[in-house]
């Protein structure tokens, strides 16, 4: 497969008419939308609207029964999650999915696994190739640790960290992969105001400094309208709105879904 280079502002990923059901539950029905290179794209919607399922389709964890996903100008066939990762799609999870038994540092190092090539034998011998590679990537990861301001918890097992910090470490792990497309599933859920502000800053910085395209799900409307370039709204698996924040805010269907949906 050959992927085209996508310039900022052009479509990086396009989702066309995808539908996904689990037995009788229709999680996504006939949704199309696209993500432009370099933008911050938000997906919002009431609980159970199919937002997480959408991210799961994009990174190959779920396979939609209908529709296509085009990434960098190339129509994707059903792929495994690790293949999506290899193509530069990284993500965080709604319920933190860190590796509990490992330290912050090691967790973020796992994000670099796709770039580490030394085999079993050279890793066993360590001195020479494997050590050099490890140190190289360690340097990159230390930069992320500095960027996220988590130096103090470098060696702490992540299971012992408070929730807000865990979310931050998870972001670090995703960043370590140097993704082209970063999917964030409710990165600010359960955080206090200060933590939210920090997280917003990190997201904007990542987008700014590395030009990383970001697709995020968030329930906090203030945040969404503030930081995102475009917003898509899902309800009961279907798309009910899409556009720049101001447009979406004015969309009657969206207002109904949010007021009527018990929000």
């Amino acid at each position: 497969m050959t992927y085209q280079d996508v310039k900022p502002g052009e479509v990086l990923l396009a989702v066309d008419n995808i539908s996904l059901s689990f037995g009788a539950v229709r999680a996504i029905s006939d949704v199309s939308f696209d993500i432009n290179k370099g933008e911050i794209r938000a997906i919002i919607g009431p609980n159970g609207a199919g937002k997480t399922s959408m991210l799961n389709c994009i990174n190959g964890f779920y396979h939609p029964q209908q529709g296509t996903i085009t990434y960098k100008g190339q129509k994707r066939s059903a792929m495994k999650p690790y293949e999506a990762a290899a193509q530069g799609i990284a993500r965080t999870f709604q319920n933190v999915a860190l590796f509990k038994g490992m330290s912050t540092l090691d967790n973020i190092m796992t994000g670099r696994n796709l770039k580490m090539k030394s085999g079993i034998f050279s890793s066993m011998l360590w001195y020479g190739g494997a050590q050099k590679e490890e140190l190289e990537h360690r340097r990159y990861v230390e930069d992320i640790i500095d960027f996220l301001e988590i130096q103090a918890i470098r060696k702490t097992p992540v299971g012992r960290l408070p929730y807000g910090l865990q979310k931050r470490v998870e972001l670090g792990r995703a960043l370590a992969a140097e993704p082209e497309l970063l999917l964030l599933d409710e990165p600010m859920a359960g955080m206090n105001l200060e933590e939210k502000e920090d997280m917003c800053r990190f997201i904007l910085d990542v987008n700014d400094e590395f030009g990383t395209t970001i697709c995020l799900i968030e329930h906090d409307m203030g945040v969404v309208m503030d930081i995102s370039d475009r917003v898509m709204v899902l309800d009961y698996g279907g798309k009910i709105g899409d556009g720049v924040p101001a447009e979406v805010r004015a969309n009657q269907q969206v207002i109904d879904a949010y007021l009527g949906g018990g929000h």
Binding site: K80, A97, K100, T110, N113, I120, M124
Partner: peptide, 27 residues
């Protein structure tokens, strides 16, 4: 040496949360 290398981290990642491990790129 092996368990502190990226190979060892892959094992631990699979152990701690296999789905997340696969999603971040471990086969």
């Amino acid at each position: 040496n092996l368990v502190r290398s990226h190979i060892g981290r892959g094992w631990m990642a699979i152990r701690d949360m296999d789905i997340a491990a696969e999603i971040i790129g471990f086969r």
